[in-house]
Nucleic acid binder design. Structure first.
Length: 490
RNA sequence: GUCCCCAUCGUCUAACCGGUUAGGAUACCACUCUUUCAAGGUGGUGACACGGGUUCAAAUCCCGUUGGGGACACCA
């Protein structure tokens, strides 16, 4: 309703790095806005910096978006394939007398900027080449000096209306004559976005806060070309724990990295959306459909948000627990294969066994990789016992207890957890010890660890043969350390 | 050095155009459950940056201070 014209938005990543979570979130908001308004979401690759762009990064971006469940209606378009178009518009600006050639070399400019900085002066371009006489220009042309095209910033003030921030104003005196065409004939970012956003019919430019200082420049270009700018919405930045803009030095920043670390796309999607937006009520765990239903640009906050991995982990745990055991098993299967704990044949024949492990471990998983961390003893022999557990639970009389237990278990055909529990408790009573004096040593014997799921459930899954084997091994082990202890005393 | 943006628990946030014991989530702590660790359940600690206005009434509107962040490339 709010727009008579069809909404068209875009995400325009540059393939000079992996898909940053900030870019991903901007993509999300754009996508949500497009879907919400029945509009189009366009993917454009800003690869005019040929040197720094790479194919791998492009793949990472495309994969990351797809993985998150963000699909695009048009594109990907590549700016590197549209160079003639920018040239045409640059010429138009030049012919209109709104731009001039600059023969200063990048080195000269950098030097001047450095000096300005040292002398604590403003580092704006000094319009050196604007005042060039015809002769001077001819001379430079004869020398075949490379030239860049600079936009001639007019006097006055430039402002724009931002959906999130309201009106933003800037005096043109603060804007330097920025370059729109580099000397190699490629456009500069500010020209390229303007031309592309116009050519692609973009109605709303939704992007990071860090672009606010660029926006007046772009508005100026729209004006110079006699075009109507799109509506702008500048998103708050995502910060690292130290409150500075999230970047490489904060560690994990790319979507693919989170994928590889065992996060679910639904969880990351949900988490990212809530970083800077809320539905207005207390809901947090929200499906894509729910989010879509309540999403609006107006509810996006202005304040930068710290990326809190702990909360992401919690949310991921919630999503993991929503999965069925079967589905979750499928998701952790690759890591089991990779570890070499199972093979194809095993997967097929022992599916029930695997599902029961998943069901046991699911509640304590926060990432998919937690599964292999917690499940080793279901697939491998226990090679060593946790040290502090040995001290605490392997006592002088423990071998006798375990021996007695082993004797009873050997007679059992029913290895159900209920039956196991009564065996343990009965025996403990007969031995006149607390059940825990039996439970803890056995857990350590069978898993090598002091913590984990309920013991009887573990025993049921591991099965009689294996449990007996491990108990036998433990009896020998404790005898050995007991002898050593006694030997040392004598 | 210049310009711009922002300001509610440690963190993410709610409180529609001024009236709330400032709500939720996470994290943390306690209790509970219990064979351990989690999960679950219950409870708790914890915030309107400061100073001026405007108003009967300000977290909310205005101004300033402070603080934080961002941008000032022939990168995007």
């Amino acid at each position: 309703m709010e727009n008579l014209e069809k909404v068209r938005v875009r995400i325009a990543p540059s393939p000079t790095g992996l898909l940053h979570v900030g870019t991903a979130r901007a993509a999300l908001y754009n996508w949500l806005f497009a879907r919400k308004n029945n509009g189009k979401f366009i993917l454009r690759i800003e690869d005019t910096d040929i040197v720094r762009s790479s194919k791998e990064m492009l793949t990472s971006i495309l994969d990351g978006l797809s993985w998150l469940g963000i699909d695009w209606d048009e594109g990907p378009f590549f700016q590197s394939e549209r160079l003639e178009i920018y040239k045409k518009y640059a010429d138009k600006i030049y012919e209109g007398g709104k731009a001039y050639y600059c023969y200063c070399t990048p080195e000269e400019l950098a030097e001047r900027r450095e000096r300005a900085k040292r002398e604590k002066r403003d580092l704006k371009y000094d319009r050196n080449c604007l005042g060039l006489s015809e002769e001077e220009k001819m001379k430079l042309e004869d020398e075949k000096r490379p030239k860049a095209l600079r936009f001639l910033v007019p006097e006055g003030e430039t402002s724009f209306q931002d959906i999130i921030h309201g009106q933003v104003k800037k005096s043109n005196e603060e804007i330097e004559d920025f370059i729109i065409m580099k000397s190699d004939g490629t456009p500069t970012y500010n020209l390229a976005v303007v031309v592309d956003d116009f050519k692609m019919g973009i109605t709303h430019t939704i992007r990071g806060d860090d672009h606010i200082p660029n926006t007046p420049k772009q508005v100026l270009l729209y004006k110079a070309l006699n075009l109507t700018p799109p509506k702008f919405a500048h998103l708050p930045l995502i910060l690292g724990e130290d409150k500075s803009k999230l970047s490489k030095r904060h560690g994990a920043i790319s979507v693919t990295q989170y994928r590889d670390e065992g996060f679910l796309p639904e969880a990351l999607f949900n988490f990212l959306v809530l970083l800077g937006w809320s539905p207005g009520d207390d809901r947090e765990i929200m499906s894509k459909e729910e989010i879509l239903k309540s999403f609006s640009l107006e509810r996006i906050s202005k304040t930068a948000a710290v990326f809190d991995v702990e909360k992401l982990e919690w949310m991921n745990g919630v999503y993991i627990n929503k999965l069925s055991d079967e589905k979750l098993l499928d998701m952790v299967t690759p890591s089991l294969l990779e570890k070499g704990w199972v093979d194809r044949d095993f997967l097929e024949k022992k599916r029930e066994f695997l599902v029961s492990i998943v069901s046991l471990l699911k509640k304590r998983m926060r990432r998919l990789n937690d599964f292999v961390r917690y499940s080793s003893y279901f697939f491998n022999d226990v090679e060593e016992y946790e040290n502090k557990g040995v001290k605490k639970h392997f006592k002088e009389d423990t071998p006798d207890h375990i021996k007695a237990l082993k004797k009873r278990l050997e007679k059992q055909d029913d290895f159900s957890q209920e039956n196991l529990e009564s065996i343990f408790r009965d025996l403990a009573e007969e031995l006149d010890i607390k059940p825990s004096r039996l439970i803890h040593p056995v857990r350590l014997a069978v898993t090598g660890e002091t913590v984990g799921p309920g013991l009887f459930e573990i025993l049921e899954i591991i099965g009689k043969n294996c449990v007996i084997k491990r108990l036998t091994k433990t009896i020998e082990y404790i005898k050995l350390i007991n002898n050593e202890k006694n030997g040392a005393i004598v």
